[in-house]
Amino acid sequence: MQNGMDGSITTSKGISLPRPKLRALQKILRNRQGLVAVLILLPMIAFAFLAPVLPLQDPLKSNITASLQPPSTDNLFGTDKLGRDIFSRTVSGMQTSMMVGIIVATITLCGGLLIGSVSGFFGGRMDRFIMGIVDIFLSFPSLLLAIGMVAIFGAGMLPVIIAISIADLPRAIRLQRSLVLSVKSGAFIDAARMVSAPTHWLLFRHIIPNTLAPMLVAASITAANAILTEASLSFLGLGITPPEPSLGNIIREGQMYLQEAWWISTLPGLVIFAIAISLHLLSDGIREVLDPRSKR
């Protein structure tokens, strides 16, 4: 059955023994979509966070003589009205996007796992209370919830992250809760209860490991959505405000010069698009690799 090519060791008897820890990572890289995603994402993340030490132009330095220059070897993405280099502004904005994506995904993943597990596993009054709150938050379209939140907390990186996290958390809680409920009804939970397995054993050995895969898939999509939401907020002028660059506000600034300088808006948009696509491919990769039904 096994050909030994998927990270398993083949013993002399021809029986393959999988090594659990390495397997997941290796399989992501062997998965075509996962590989493409990692190949796009990793350089982007590295580039974004290494920007300060890279030989790039200062994203905030204006140069009126080079106003609205089209893309060239000097300015890969051209310049804006103030003559600032769009490429280095985009890289800087990418850093913001990545931060928002990673932090929001982490918060919603952890919060979702914690609150959703409590709600789904223990049920009862606690569950009704939590789900009541979740329902209230889910009654707002997510971007509008974030807009409202930003209106309260003000503009800037931290408020944006808080706003998007609050808007996305209810969905994660609801997902985790439904996953817990479905795993909880499985016969292997009965098997564990039959030997009086304590609550922490049921939760950490049986339930959460089996909800982790879909939650990770959801988290990578949440990261993509968070990046899009941040960009939307900044585009509307409510998120990260100039002069600090963000992909959304660069596009906003470019909107005024759409006719004479198409590059200001279009090229940073392409970057958001690429990030979103690779995060979705990553989620597909995770889904396929962690699916217990897939052949190991």
Partner: peptide
């Protein structure tokens, strides 16, 4: 102790 009808669902796949 018990032996289940569908052994597969009585095992944690992980």
């Amino acid at each position: 102790q018990m032996v289940f009808q569908d052994p597969y669902s009585s095992f944690n796949p992980k």
